[in-house]
């Protein structure tokens, strides 16, 4: 009886794992078939409508990674001022703090936030303990544009 229960449990786990692997494979195939547009941060923010919901490749130095769960990070353009917010998407769970100061190439979907999301983000931003001091990525944090990253690679460590 106990052996039967154990075998049923193991079979259930094996089937579930196989399904997960298959689904992940399908998603990767779907991503590969889409066209990827290469752009700089300045280009993206100068004409956001041109890139909205398109898959883009963008790179820059990571200036900040959210300390609470790594659910967003910011990269700065070559001008040293313009920044864009990156949020994890696809199989990315979080961004590690170790990315700060590294130049990273991101691939992802360029998004324009809806009104509801902006309100949520602003509410979070206005949390009094969010940051000890006002930081340079504050504008990018409040901005309605962001990149939902599906893949990234450190260019410089």
């Amino acid at each position: 009886m106990q052996r039967s229960i154990l075998w049923v449990l193991l079979a259930f786990l094996a089937i579930s794992c196989n399904q997960t692997v298959k689904n992940e494979g399908d998603n990767q195939e779907a991503v590969k078939t889409e066209e990827i547009v290469s752009a700089t941060i300045v280009e993206l923010l100068a004409a956001p409508a041109d890139y909205q919901d398109k898959e883009v490749a963008v790179s820059g130095m990571v200036t900040h990674v959210c300390r609470h769960g790594g659910q967003k990070c910011f990269i700065v353009a070559d001008d040293g001022e313009t920044q864009i917010r990156i949020v994890p998407g696809g199989d990315i769970d979080e961004f590690k703090i170790e990315l700060e100061g590294s130049t990273v190439a991101f691939k992802g979907i360029f998004r324009v936030q809806t009104v509801e999301l902006t309100a949520e983000e602003l509410e979070e931003y206005e949390s009094k303990e969010h940051h000890e001091v006002e930081q340079s990525h504050s504008d990018a944090e409040k901005a309605e544009y962001f990149l939902e990253a599906v893949d990234f690679k450190e260019v410089t460590p």
């Binding site: 130095m61 200036t63 100061g101 410089t156 460590p157």
Partner: peptide, 20 residues
């Protein structure tokens, strides 16, 4: 040492492995 940049006119940020 990793890289540096200026968050604003008054500050210099130097990024390190394991800190800044």
């Amino acid at each position: 040492y990793k890289q540096y940049y200026f968050p604003d006119q008054d500050h210099l940020m130097i990024y390190l492995k394991g800190g800044h």
